[in-house]
């Protein structure tokens, strides 16, 4: 569905530290190599409180296994993801595909998050620095002011075109 949640740098699912949701019947913790320590520390913390199932993955090659694990869970399961950005996006997307809501997932990103801007000139997405306020479109080279609004349909922040001082452009 077009309005299914997507993982972006300000997603509500992203947390600095996992919070145990003890009202849930079970926890599933999925981590990659980068997130292994974070996952281990969390499972130690909650030991003996709620049943836990853990999965350590390497990357895309483990997609089917992740899917199987998510689909085999019953309602009331809380999911925890500790991974580098690309793997976190993959796991999160598989969870959403399986019907999970953002409230059922907590994600700790290890390393940098990725951020994208949607160019209002050519309708393409470009990756931008985490704190950048302006950018140049990778596709049409338009100068863009990065707005505060995110589109889950376009999967990027709005990029308002502007003409930098000294640059002349013609358009309608």
């Amino acid at each position: 569905m077009y309005n299914s949640p997507v993982l972006f740098d300000k997603s509500i699912t992203i947390v600095n530290k996992f919070t145990p949701r003890n009202e849930r019947r079970k926890f599933v913790v999925i981590s990659d190599q980068a997130g292994y320590d974070q996952a281990k520390s969390f499972t130690s913390e909650i030991e003996g409180t709620v049943p836990v199932e853990c999965l350590s993955i390497n990357g895309m090659e483990d997609k089917e296994e992740i899917k199987r694990l998510i689909l085999s869970q019953k309602m009331g399961t809380q999911f925890y993801i500790a991974a580098a950005w690309n793997n976190a996006v993959m796991i999160f997307s598989l969870g959403v595909e399986a019907g999970l809501s953002e409230a059922e997932i907590q994600t700790v990103i290890i390393g940098p998050k990725r951020r994208y801007v949607y160019c209002m000139k050519c309708f393409e997405v470009s990756e931008v620095e985490e704190e950048a306020e302006i950018a140049e479109c990778d596709h049409c080279k338009a100068s863009l002011e990065i707005g505060p609004f995110y589109s889950i349909v376009r999967e990027g922040y709005i990029g308002y075109p502007y003409i930098p001082i000294g640059k002349v452009e013609v358009g309608s």
Partner: peptide
């Protein structure tokens, strides 16, 4: 406004504060 940008957005998102 932009139909292209606002496609799929909720009424609340469309009426979020305008730029800056």
């Amino acid at each position: 406004f932009s139909a292209n940008w606002n496609k799929g957005m909720s009424f609340d998102e469309i009426h979020a504060p305008v730029p800056f």
